[in-house]
Amino acid sequence: MEKHVWKWMFVSFLSIVLVLSACSSPSSDSGSSKEGEDKPVATTSDKPLAPLKEPATVVVAEDGSASGAGFYIAKEKGYFEEYGVKVKFVSFGNSDEMLPAVAAGEVDVAGGISSASFFNSIAQGIDIRMIADKGHNIKGDSYFSFVIRKDLQDEIKSYEDFKGKKVAVSTKNAVDDYIYQKMLEHAGLTRDDVEFVLMSDFGNMMSSMGTKTVDAALQIEPLITKGTDENIHVRFGDATDFAPKAQIAMVLGSPKFMDERREVAKRFMAAYLRGVRDYNDAFVKDKGNKQEIIEIMTKHTAVKDPKVWENVAVTGLNPNGEMFVDNIKEQYEFYKENGAIKGDLDIDKVVDLSLVKEVVDIIGKYE
């Protein structure tokens, strides 16, 4: 793939979740405006999660992020339709308009990534809820981890050997920076011991490795695999060595969706979790129809080569929707200690796992 395609792929990989710059107007690929959102919701029977009598539309801000797998799979396999839910995907450039749209109920569901910018938006009055997992590293197979130049394999044997080296990281005061900090603590190093190189473009990280202007990088899939195949870098350890429960991305819900449209939200979440379970069956348990899931991922994401999906480390998605809430709090405190947070925020009031708990009680727990 061309370099600019890889750059675009990363932006959509974390997508809306980066919440860092100016935003464009939303566009949609399917569906229509919300139907009956202010009317009582009727179902076809009294059974738990029976289909809605009249279809209801749920607007989802998602534009090709691999961590949106649960949405894509549920859509393609008819899980949303089964519950009488229509999904309308819209895309935003970033948070400047997306987050207020979620808070206002114009968008029901979106994705967010841990960053000082994200938390500041909430602290300054943007009312949204973190309602389910949308991205974490799978132990021993992180999709977001460190790589080192291939020619430095004999020189860098442990994280302690990062001392004096130039390490590229894509953000400051966001989850990348947090993971970098956890690596330093694990290695017994300080920020003065290692040269932090801020490099927002992951494709440029790979190029810089090739020209030997950086020694290591906190890289993301599928560029980890691509750079390894091209003999530019090698994977170094795993991010779960030092950050085993890092919450990278979260599903966000609007208060209106969670409260006023609860019956619709329950059915949406049930379909989403069923999609995530199919994803886990395919990529984690290596069972089920993996090729079908890969076809869905190639259709909806920027990674169009099925062979890539066979080889890369994939985003971790919890099949019961659970998040590492304590880690969300830890990351918030990290940004606050860095002076990047303006105002105070009670994370317990922002995280709302009531919907996933209610739905898992109905559809059963995935083991």
Rank of each mutant, 00 (worst) to 15 (best):
A69E: 03
L198N: 14
K39Q: 13
K342V: 13
D286Y: 09
K342I: 09
Q181E: 15
E195N: 14
G135Q: 08
T43I: 02
V167N: 08
L99D: 01
G288Q: 08
T171Q: 14
K329L: 06
I148R: 03
Q247N: 10
M1F: 11
A282V: 04
M130V: 13
K226S: 05
A74T: 09
V87R: 04
K165Q: 09
H136G: 03
K3Y: 05
V59A: 11
D127L: 03
D38C: 02
I294F: 10
G135F: 03
E263W: 10
M205T: 00
V314H: 15
K166F: 12
G111P: 00
S21I: 07
G140L: 05
I220A: 12
S208N: 14
L184S: 10
V264S: 11
V251Y: 14
S114N: 12
N137E: 14
E37M: 12
K3N: 09
Y335A: 12
F119I: 02
M209T: 02
V5W: 03
I138S: 01
T301N: 03
V59W: 08
C23M: 06
F71W: 10
A217G: 07
P55R: 15
I293Y: 06
I362P: 06
M269V: 13
M183Q: 12
G275T: 05
T43K: 15
S45T: 15
V60D: 04
E292F: 00
E230D: 14
V167T: 10
A101Y: 07
V147N: 04
D141E: 11
A249P: 01
A132L: 08
Y178S: 01
L14T: 05
A74I: 06
V325D: 03
D177A: 08
N327L: 01
K3Q: 07
E358T: 11
T211N: 15
K172N: 11
T315H: 02
S95I: 01
E263A: 15
K157I: 05
L223S: 02
V169W: 06
L273N: 09
H136D: 07
V312L: 15
E82H: 15
D63V: 04
D352L: 02
G84T: 05
N289I: 01
G203R: 00
P100D: 09
S145N: 13
V167W: 10
E62T: 08
T301K: 03
Y335S: 13
I296P: 06
Y335D: 12
V5R: 05
G227E: 00
V350E: 04
D38Q: 11
N327I: 02
D151Y: 02
S21M: 06
V284M: 12
N338P: 06
A270Q: 04
S95W: 04
Y72C: 00
F10T: 10
D133V: 00
D46N: 14
V194G: 11
